[in-house]
Computed example of a mutant assay.
Amino acid sequence: MTRIDAKFAALKAENRKAFVAYVMAGDPDEAKSLEIVKALPGAGVDIIELGLPFTDPMADGPTIQLAGQRALDQHMTLDKTLGIARAFREEDETTPIVLMGYYNPIYSRGVDKFLVQAKEAGIDGLIIVDLPPEEDEELCIPAQKAGLNFIRLATPTTDDERLPKVLQNTSGFVYYVSITGITGAAEASGADVAPEVARIKSQTDLPIIVGFGVKTPEKAEEIAAIADGTVVGSAIVNKIAEGQSVEDIAAYVKTLADGAHRA
């Protein structure tokens, strides 16, 4: 059982929904990024998504793209990203960390070497947005054998024919993208999300976490009530971009987490 599996089991026992927060590793710099990550559990975050900066983030909107560029400008690397996870683990052994990004840096490192390093650093799961199910032998299967969850995205365009393929080797949870398009582009609609979550739940026992377009405590509560939890990324990254203090960022995150936990 991974930390992700254990977290969802604990939340289910408490009849609580999950709140997942995304931040870009190295944004605005390595030191402050680590401070922000360390502050997230105290702000009510159940699972941390740690973005891996990449030069061509095709699935991301301007907010996340700019966060990645800020990190790259600060010379953020895969090794330094794993270093943030490793430093976090010195103080927190229980909060799951999902590394989210693109396959190129992992491919360049070498899958076997990367998986050993990720596991050693305390990474619990991977979301690699540009690896479709047809490429499961590349990373998904090796990651699961190494004890990491491989979390897949489902979207409004994932039809009934495609969905079983998406789900077949997914573990940890399913990340449902609530809108068609890039991150930060629009607001999620509970009316649109509810039938899609029900459709996915009919095909899997995995928790369904909904992200994209969640920006307020009220929306976090609305979406979490429909699913098993919600993800907020761009709205948090905007606060980082504004230069807010770690304390102010954590206070904002807590309002979102409290919203999700009210669901």
Rank of each mutant, 00 (worst) to 15 (best):
G147K: 13
T63V: 15
D56L: 07
S108N: 11
D124P: 06
T55Q: 12
A225W: 14
F114K: 01
G184T: 03
K38L: 14
G211V: 09
S202C: 00
I123R: 02
I249S: 06
P164D: 03
A251Y: 14
V98A: 00
I4A: 02
E120W: 13
T204A: 04
E187C: 07
T170C: 15
T204V: 00
V210F: 10
K201I: 04
A188E: 12
G213D: 11
I223N: 00
S171L: 06
L206T: 06
T2L: 11
P207L: 10
D92N: 14
S202Y: 02
S202D: 12
D79W: 12
P217A: 11
D248L: 05
A13R: 11
V174H: 03
I127T: 03
R162H: 14
I182D: 01
L66V: 06
Y176V: 02
R162V: 08
Y103A: 11
A241Y: 05
G83M: 12
T216C: 07
T2S: 11
G229I: 06
A188F: 15
E187N: 12
E247C: 04
I128Y: 08
P57N: 10
I123P: 00
L167T: 07
M1F: 11
T255Q: 09
T255E: 14
A188Y: 11
G110S: 07
I151P: 04
M1T: 09
S245N: 09
K38D: 10
K32A: 12
K7Y: 10
V177W: 05
V231N: 01
L131Y: 13
D228P: 05
D205A: 09
A220R: 02
A154W: 04
G233A: 13
A146N: 14
E247H: 07
L11I: 08
A67E: 02
R199H: 09
A121E: 15
R89F: 11
S202H: 04
L131E: 12
L115F: 08
A154D: 06
I236D: 04
V20T: 05
I208K: 00
E90M: 12
L139A: 08
K145I: 13
V232Q: 05
Y176C: 03
A225S: 14
R162G: 07
G233D: 13
K254C: 05
L66F: 10
I200N: 03
T77S: 09
F19C: 09
I106N: 04
M24G: 07
R16K: 15
D5L: 06
E35Y: 06
P53H: 03
A235I: 08
G259S: 15
V214M: 07
A6M: 08
D192V: 00
A198L: 08
A154E: 09
K145G: 10
P28W: 09
L66M: 13
D27I: 04
E161I: 11
D5P: 01
T55M: 13
V23P: 03
Y175A: 02
A263G: 10
Q65L: 06
F88S: 02
P156V: 12
T77P: 02
C140V: 14
I208N: 01
D228N: 04
V116Q: 10
V98D: 02
V116I: 12
I36K: 01
I223Y: 03
S234C: 09
L52Q: 04
P133T: 11
K38F: 14
P96S: 05
